[in-house]
Amino acid sequence: MKHFFQPINFHEHPGAFYGHIVLGLAVMFGVLGILQAVPRQYRKWIIAVFTFLGGLFYVAEFFLPAHSGKNSLNKYDDVVANIFVVVGAYAIGLGVISLLQLHVRKVVRTAPGWGNSAALIISFLGMTVFGLLNEYAPHRLLFHGRLFSQGIRVTNSSVFDFLFTGGIANFGSAIFSMIAFFIASAAYRAFRVRSLESSLLMTAALIIMLGSVGFGTILTNWLPLGNDPKSEFWANFRIENIAQWLLLQVNTPAQRGILFGITLGELAMALRLWLSLERGSYFDKEV
């Protein structure tokens, strides 16, 4: 049965490839049709059953008896993973349609800020076109000549590199770098002696900062390193050791405590979703 779900090479088995597509579409429309035909009060039950079966795979795979670390469901792991990849691909289409609808409407109506929307549409189309050209015709020459007495060869691949590596990648790094500035202004604003808790917060932060860099470790560099039993005690007062102590003995138990709570919360939420016990506007909505 696993063989049925394996990816098919289009060039080797074109018939099987198209057959699987037709079968997939037929199953999809069949399920949608059944869902439409079923009376309203039963639709939520059908969705609950499919939700349960979907989650049951991983639960069963974990609990079913295994021999040498494998049971009968392990071989379908990559099939299920591929299903997630396919659903993710559908999601990209959804996002693109939603994005283009909004921004094309803004450009057509010349609403305030329509220039930004036009820039987005042009960037989107440019990246799509050159992304596809880079995949299927990377070495096709677009321009060949001289510019400022330098020979220039522009291919699809070089344009894509310029846009992706030169553009997107560097813009991402630039935005990430903004965090450094925000940390500075947030730290300046937040670390104030307003109460006992904020004083403790500030003290701990200062110690960790001082203990992490050379500028801070110089302050207690005159204390012994603690390589021999006689100097071990005094080495505990070196700023980097105090910082490590704070991280290991104070921060770690706090993180563990929060982690316990969050993990239980996630387990409870996951159980509610799996068993369709979840309530709220989206889950109570009639299908």
């Binding site: 925000f182 709570g261 969050i262 919360g265 996630e266």
Partner: peptide
């Protein structure tokens, strides 16, 4: 980061509660 910049922060499992 939220504690430093936000007015109120829900920590840990209070988020799920």
């Amino acid at each position: 980061f939220f504690l430093a910049a936000c007015d109120y922060v829900i920590i840990g499992e209070e988020y799920y509660a």
